[in-house]
Each structure stands twice: as structure tokens, then as C-alpha cells.
């Protein structure tokens, strides 16, 4: 009964204040980038949640494969010497 609009899906990122990164807030449908921005403003910043917005077509986002996550993120495993907490001998030394 309703005709399909098939508007693309956009992902919305909001910067809440200067000095902070844009953070993913959600998604919305809009026919073009300008409407996507305006809808994002109305939908995700009704209470001063943001001072800057990004909208990105969902289909333009490249993602890692959730099924291969173990192999994909394997490299840092067992490399705890990359963390400061690995180094115990110097414990108690001030300002280190």
C-alpha cells in the first residue's frame, strides 16, 4: 500500500564538544547528504548534544569480518610488554 522510498542509510557521528572526537550516535534514512545532515541534527542533537556532525553512507564504511576477529586481532596477543604495567622492576621509582 505504501510506495517504497528506498532512501539510503546514513551513519551519524556527533562531536559533543571541542577537544573530543566524533562518536557514532546512530543511523537514519535520507534521500541525500543535505537532508541526512538536517535529519541528523533534528534526531540526534535535540538537547545540545553536539557542535559538529558527520554523516556517512553506511555502504561506504569498510568493516572487519566479525567471524575472523580472532585471527584479525591476533597480533597484540601475548605482547603485554607494550603496556607500562609489564615493567615491575622499576616499581617505587618516583615520576617514572
Amino acid at each position: 500500500m505504501s510506495q517504497k522510498s528506498n532512501w539510503p542509510l546514513w551513519e551519524v557521528f556527533v562531536r559533543s564538544s571541542r577537544g573530543l572526537s566524533h562518536v557514532h550516535a546512530g543511523s537514519l534514512h535520507a534521500p541525500d547528504k543535505e537532508m541526512a545532515l538536517r535529519n541528523a541534527r533534528d534526531l540526534y542533537t535535540r538537547r545540545n548534544e553536539g557542535i559538529s556532525l558527520w554523516v556517512v553512507l553506511s555502504t561506504d564504511i569498510i568493516t572487519s569480518d566479525p567471524d575472523s576477529k580472532d585471527a584479525f586481532f591476533e597480533s597484540p596477543q601475548g605482547k603485554d610488554y607494550r603496556h607500562a604495567t609489564y615493567y615491575k622492576a622499576s616499581e617505587g621509582v618516583k615520576h617514572l
Binding site: 500500500m1 505504501s2 517504497k4 522510498s5 528506498n6 542509510l9 546512530g26 543511523s27 537514519l28 534514512h29 533534528d42 534526531l43 535535540r46
Partner: peptide, 25 residues
């Protein structure tokens, strides 16, 4: 707004917005 947040969440499960809208109408 709340309706739209929730439709977005529902869509991530694989049913698109037009279909959800149609189910209501």
C-alpha cells in the same frame, strides 16, 4: 525520535525500514 532510534535498531536485524513501515500501515 524514539521511534526512529528503534526502527534503526530493528533494521540492523535485517528487515528494512519500508517493510517495517508497511507492517504498521
Amino acid at each position: 525520535g524514539h521511534g526512529l532510534y528503534l526502527y534503526s535498531a530493528a533494521e540492523t536485524l535485517g528487515t528494512d525500514r519500508d517493510e517495517l513501515n508497511d507492517q504498521l500501515l
